[in-house]
């Protein structure tokens, strides 16, 4: 595959959340506001890009039989780094995201990409794949965050759009996450049908 294809693949054709149905837990849990969603996207992108990069670098010396434990150690190293960085520099965000930061380690998107792509491809391709996949994840996560924040609190990134009395508070409560993603998937079905 060319570099451009590697990059675009994760954003559209194999979008992790809506097409492959993986990485659902963080998508639903942290999308209560646009800023939380953005923070989670950046943390996941950091882990995914560097795990892909290092797996691709080490792919010739990792023995095939124990590759999964090795991947887990590579991924959890970067998760621990981002965990401590966020704890030190963005304490509010760290508190809002809570247990979902260490849980990036079991995000299927990361282990899936490392196993299916970075282990078999050169360094530059793998890094671009990581960037594309992270962007695909970030776009969905942030748009769900924006939709829920506007409908549920009447604000966007903390800026008031309309009075909170008019907002449907259920959208920032747990049911709102399920409703939003259900309607987004139906919308995607509709768009797909028009293409054919």
């Amino acid at each position: 595959m060319s570099y451009k294809e590697d990059f675009v693949n994760g954003i559209f054709r194999e979008n992790p959340v809506l097409r492959l149905m993986i990485g659902l837990c963080p998508t639903l849990a942290v999308s209560t506001s646009a800023i939380n969603a953005l923070g989670m996207s950046i943390a996941t992108a950091f882990v995914l890009i560097f795990s892909n990069l290092f797996t691709a670098l080490l792919r010739k010396i990792i023995p095939d039989e124990i590759r999964i434990p090795v991947f887990i150690i590579i991924v959890s190293t970067f998760v621990t780094i981002s965990d401590y960085i966020m704890q030190a520099y963005t304490p509010d965000l760290y508190k809002a995201l809570g247990v979902f930061i260490p849980l990036i380690v079991v995000n299927c998107i990361i282990l899936g990409r490392v196993e299916a792509y970075a282990y078999k491809n050169p360094v530059i391709n793998s890094t671009l794949d990581g960037i594309g996949m992270s962007l695909g994840f970030a776009i969905i996560l942030t748009s769900i965050g924006i939709i829920r924040e506007i409908l549920g609190a009447g604000t966007i990134l903390g800026i008031t759009l309309f009075s909170p009395d008019l907002a449907a508070i259920v959208m920032i409560l747990p049911p709102g996450a399920f409703i939003t993603i259900g309607f987004l998937m139906a919308l995607l079905n509709k768009l797909e049908k028009r293409d054919i």
């Binding site: 049911p175 709102g176 996450a177 399920f178 409703i179 993603i181 259900g182 998937m185 139906a186 079905n189």
Partner: peptide, 8 residues
């Protein structure tokens, strides 16, 4: 989609 709405 309907599964998500049910879960909601």
């Amino acid at each position: 989609p309907i599964a998500f709405i049910t879960a909601a």
